[in-house]
């Protein structure tokens, strides 16, 4: 039972998993960078980011560069911890 507990339902999707992977090794990433790396559409990425934001796994900072809105995402402490737990659980399941 213990192992399954750590499998996080929220990470049970390719895009969300990708977002967390990028933010685990980068201090921050903006929307376009994530889009480019994950190869997804704007709407798709936005909805997954929203889900992670709601769970407080990532934090969002909106600024303006000139007139263009610029959104930066960071993994929160909780997010990083949950992600690490998730990976460890995955590894245990495989072994």
């Amino acid at each position: 039972m213990g192992i399954i507990d750590n499998i996080n339902k929220l990470f049970d999707h390719r895009v969300r998993l990708g977002i967390m992977s990028v933010l685990a090794v980068n201090e921050a990433a903006d929307f376009n960078r994530l889009k480019e790396l994950l190869n997804v559409t704007d709407g798709n990425l936005a909805s997954h980011l929203k889900a992670l934001e709601k769970a407080e796994y990532i934090s969002v900072a909106k600024t303006f560069i000139g007139r263009k809105p610029h959104t930066n995402y960071k993994a929160t402490k909780i997010g990083k911890l949950e992600f690490k737990k998730h990976i460890e659980a995955l590894e245990k399941l495989i072994n």
Binding site: R14, G18, S21, V22
Partner: peptide, 10 residues
């Protein structure tokens, strides 16, 4: 997938 994303982004 996790490994790939980490490597490509960093």
């Amino acid at each position: 997938h996790i490994k790939d994303m980490m490597n490509r982004s960093s």
